[in-house]
């Protein structure tokens, strides 16, 4: 039986716990268990905290990695930001012995030591590599019949030099996972564009930040897309709650349901809309996503 330390971060447990519930349910269904990382904190966000003070960013991120190391478990994340910070910090500490020593010096009195013996994974990798497309397809009991816009976000794929998931201009992993549920992943203009939330833009410049989102939603609508599937809790908040903010700020309505990838897979496995927290989203689910 495979086990992962589930790094929750902030937005998953504190705004969209449906993502947390769906992820645990889906992984359990395939015999994968998740364990708590007691006392974990904000990752902290790579584009925001990394922009304020990289040393503080590295120490806090390293602490989160060390807590999972102590359990001897690889980490799974459900947010590109969390994945971005923890995977990058882990990468830096594996490459730079002097920084590893500096981190360990700082946590000596707390009894924490960075060893570099676990992996930081994104939920997409666990779904694709540990479970696999074939097993996911075989387990579908309630196929999704909808046109989907895949939103990859940024920090799962980039910087490719650090992430190591291949060419970030032509990924297929999310499209393949979407299509395993029976849905159709439809190509749309600027598919790989950022949602607009990262780097502190959402906090500082909400109008500009939502303009990114608005462009993406309009591009999806133009192709007849009926739902957005994302891989990041922060993108998720921006695309879902962002539609309410777009309506208030710009008077434009898109009404596109937004689902996290494990919520979509959860529906295909027979879990109900309510069990996956989808009934509590800002944008109501349409009948295609109601079970």
């Amino acid at each position: 039986m495979k086990e992962y330390a589930y790094f929750l971060g902030c937005i998953t447990p504190n705004r969209y716990p449906g993502i947390e519930a769906a992820t645990i349910k889906v992984l359990n269904k395939f015999g994968i268990e998740t364990r708590d990382i007691e006392g974990a904190s904000c990752c902290p966000a790579p584009g925001v905290f990394g922009s304020f003070d990289l040393r503080t960013w590295l120490l806090i991120a390293a602490r989160n990695v060390m807590l999972a190391e102590k359990k001897g478990l690889d980490i799974v994340t459900t947010c590109n930001g969390c994945y971005g910070s923890l995977q990058e910090a882990d990468h830096i500490l594996k490459e730079r012995p002097e920084l590893k020593d500096w981190v360990n010096e700082n946590f000596k009195e707390e009894g924490l030591e960075y060893k570099g013996n676990i992996k930081v994974k994104h939920i997409l990798e666990v779904l694709y590599d540990d479970i696999g497309i074939n097993k996911l397809k075989e387990a579908v009991v309630s196929p999704i019949n909808a046109k989907i816009g895949a939103h990859y976000g940024c920090h799962f794929l980039k910087p490719s030099l650090v992430r190591g998931h291949g060419n970030p201009e032509r990924p297929t992993i999310l499209d393949e996972l979407i299509e395993a549920t029976g849905a159709e992943s439809v190509d749309y203009k600027d598919k790989l564009m950022c949602c607009g939330a990262g780097g502190g833009l959402r906090a500082k410049e909400l109008g500009y930040s939502l303009t990114f989102t608005k462009q993406k939603l309009a591009n999806m609508k133009e192709k007849g897309i009926e739902g957005v599937i994302d891989t990041c809790a922060f993108c998720h908040l921006q695309m879902d709650r962002g539609q309410i903010e777009i309506k208030e700020k710009f008077g434009e309505e898109y009404n596109l349901p937004v689902l996290f990838i494990t919520q979509l897979i959860g529906l295909s496995l027979g879990f109900s809309t309510k069990e996956l927290g989808l009934d509590k989203h800002s944008i109501p689910m349409t009948e295609k996503f109601i079970r």
Partner: peptide
């Protein structure tokens, strides 16, 4: 947390069968 919990989410967590307060800081 950069985005701390609120009462509304605590309630939702409970409804979803998750611990009301996440096992974090």
């Amino acid at each position: 947390h950069g985005v701390p919990i609120n009462d509304e989410t605590k309630k939702l967590r409970k409804e979803l069968g998750l611990p009301e307060v996440p096992p974090t800081t």
